[in-house]
Computed example of a mutant assay.
Amino acid sequence: MKVCHPWRSVTLNHKRHIQFLKSFPWLLLTAGEEEDQRYFFIPSENRACRLNLPEARGCHCWGSPNGWLVTLGFDQQFHLLNPLTRKRLPLPPLSTFKDRNFTASKPGTNRMFCVRKASVFTDDENPQFLVVYLIIGEFQKCAFARPGDTTWTVVGKSDLLIDVINFNGKLYAVKNGGHIRVCDDPNGPHPTLIHFAALPDVVMGTERFYLVELGGELHLVVRTSDRTQTDIPPYEFHHYVKTSYFEVFKLDLSTLKWDELETLGDYALFVGSNTTFALKASHYPDQCKAGCIYFTDDYDEAYGKLVGDDMGIYNLEADTFELLYKGDDILSRFSPPVWITPKPF
């Protein structure tokens, strides 16, 4: 394994816990996937560290802004895992979601390809409330569960989704090549998505989409990619796709009209296969780049080739890219790097 920064172990104690109460997001790297230690890059300090985390050994992981990783192991078990405290909460196993593409004879294949995205949402007034949304299966359906549930609840009419968000007590979803859908009562007995709004007129529908709350309003992030050449042989490389630019649109919930943003102002966005989230850069002085989108590779590769290379920092107003992290330890056949904001609870 080649790395670009010296690895340093993090020893957690009470003083460390205080330090992480308002931490800038970390990047969980793919290095150490099959080891008891997992490796993290801390952009605000331009350094990497390692944590003893045997609970994540061999797991496909998805990050979140609220301190939790969603993990899926070869045993087909989902968990919520706090990488600082190593606290782990059980979620329903993969076997409770029925899909004809899943086969118990190939658990590794299930782990790599069954979940397109996992998002974790909580209640600001009740941090103990947690709900995990998956985009899962052959038809990219939405399923959700809370810690301790025995089965995943499948949301009706949720085929071909790309991203979901729990916003103002409602579930919003963006459909592949389609439109925005909403479920007014995701806690009801039969949660079902219905049509809510069309995509912005200038959007083709073939891009990648992310839903995010920004300043108390619902926004759509559009990621456009181009096919490019690479020096790495195609068989070993993941794909020929590189992000070319982003667009961000705000939805007026009363008129259902979209307004394109020319700048993010004080905000920074974090997108990838993790929960999509925004931060105020002024809350992280000298750490966070305002007006930028921090992105990781989430291209849907169906053949188990390497993923992880398409990542960086994009300035929306200037239309410029900046290197985020580079090293062989971002490439994986299991899961690409993901964002997580560490919290010591």
Rank of each mutant, 00 (worst) to 15 (best):
M1G: 15
K2G: 10
V3Q: 12
V3I: 15
C4V: 11
W7Y: 14
H14R: 14
Q19C: 08
S23L: 08
L28I: 01
T30A: 12
T30W: 05
F40Y: 08
E55Q: 15
W62I: 01
N66Y: 12
G67S: 06
T71L: 06
H79S: 12
N82C: 02
L89I: 09
P93D: 04
F97T: 01
K98I: 15
D99P: 00
A104I: 14
K106C: 12
G108T: 06
T109Q: 08
D124S: 13
N126W: 08
G137F: 02
A143W: 00
A143M: 00
A145P: 01
G148H: 04
T150L: 13
V154M: 07
S158I: 04
L160F: 14
G169D: 01
A173P: 02
G178T: 05
H195W: 12
A197F: 04
P200H: 01
V202G: 09
V203H: 01
G205I: 01
G205M: 06
R208K: 14
Y210W: 08
G215S: 05
L218R: 03
R223Y: 03
D226C: 11
T228R: 11
P234W: 15
Y240H: 10
Y245H: 11
K250Q: 11
S254M: 11
W258K: 02
T263W: 02
G265M: 01
D266Q: 08
D266M: 05
Y267A: 11
Y267G: 05
G272A: 00
T276W: 00
L279Q: 05
K280C: 10
H283M: 12
D286I: 08
C292Y: 02
T296L: 00
D300H: 09
G304S: 01
K305N: 12
D309Y: 15
D310G: 04
N315C: 10
L316W: 03
A318L: 15
D319A: 09
E322G: 08
L324M: 06
D328Q: 15
D329E: 05
P337N: 06
W339H: 07
